[in-house]
Design a protein around this nucleic acid. Structure first.
Lengths: 176, 176
DNA sequence: GTGGATTGGTTGTAGATGCAACTTATCCGG
DNA sequence: CCGGATAAGTTGCATCTACAACCAATCCAC
């Protein structure tokens, strides 16, 4: 164990430090904007957006959990809160009596649609607009490598990539 | 307001999606390893590491809050927990009676030193080893741009950059 | 088709973070 | 040197997340 530690050189430790800073600050910044504008977390927004573009605005709990890289308990709690506010509703799943379907209500749909422009604008200010075209391509490539290593199934990208085959749709509700 | 939404093209939304995935999974992965190996969070580890390399192993609460991109309340709670475990101690600050100094105890120092190799190895597995040399350079540059936009003072990098002028030291406790 | 294993989901509880309120000390303009 | 403003910290509470325990339905091997 104490043999020899795999240390980092300056290039590596700088990259790591900057990434840690982003990890610390960016989620808080995302939540802050959505909280004050729409009283939802970024996680909530992701759930609502996924439902918004799902067929019949319905997804199974398990599907949602996979797409959001989340756990079922966490999702269940979040869904309960959103259900309490009338933004979505639980329905029994016809095909599988174990499963629960989540349906975006009309009110929920209005809320997401209303929240989206401000969110996208914020993401631009925070990230996209700070980078040139090459940076953005590199960010996608690098974050993709890290993401697929963290979770080999790369669930959110795949989930959205599926529908984007015909009509590119992102979790932010944008279209190419 | 509904004028025209600044939508994202496919390059941008892919990059954003992959980044969001990393934001979701990486902190959990960092915490998981440190929790099971040393029963501390990644935030705790950062605090302890900063103290480890500080003069006399002492830093003021405010300094620590700035360096960790954290808030005073969050830090205060974390310090209380670590103090309860004997890893560090609060001391009155001689120069300013409002301030509180935090000192890393010998036990805390042993703990940090013991936790560091496993943490670095994990960071390598999760991130560094997935990337080639160019990726790492690009990651540092890109994350740096985002970080400095999120917080223009880029506090952690500066805090560590100060001491690294003569002796490169990272929050992970590595040296070049 | 029965029984054990697996899957989908919920609930309770404990731990961590954000925020607001509050205290004490320092700073500074007059 | 007095009083208001600001700075450093702490505390309490509400919220969110992780984890473990649990229930119910489905699958599957025999």
């Amino acid at each position: 164990m104490p043999y020899r530690v795999p240390r980092m050189d300056e290039l590596e430790s700088t990259a790591w430090l900057e990434l840690v800073t982003v990890l610390e600050l960016l989620p808080a910044a995302l939540d802050a904007q959505l909280q004050q504008a729409s009283n939802i977390t970024h996680f909530d927004f992701t759930v609502l957006s996924l439902l918004r573009f799902a067929p019949h605005r319905v997804l199974q709990m398990k599907e949602l959990a996979v797409m959001t890289n989340s756990t079922l308990p966490r999702l269940s709690h979040a869904v309960s809160r959103l259900e309490g506010r009338g933004l979505l509703e639980r329905l029994p799943c016809p095909g599988d009596k174990r499963a629960t379907n989540v349906h975006l209500t009309d009110g929920g749909r209005r809320q997401v649609i209303r929240a989206t422009p401000g969110h996208i604008a914020h993401v631009r200010r925070l990230v996209i607009d700070q980078l040139d075209r090459d940076d953005i391509a590199a960010l996608g490539r690098i974050a993709g490598k890290i993401a697929r290593n963290l979770d080999p199934t790369d669930r959110m990208a795949n989930a959205l990539g599926a529908s984007s085959a015909t009509q590119p749709v992102t979790v932010s509700g944008t279209r190419a």
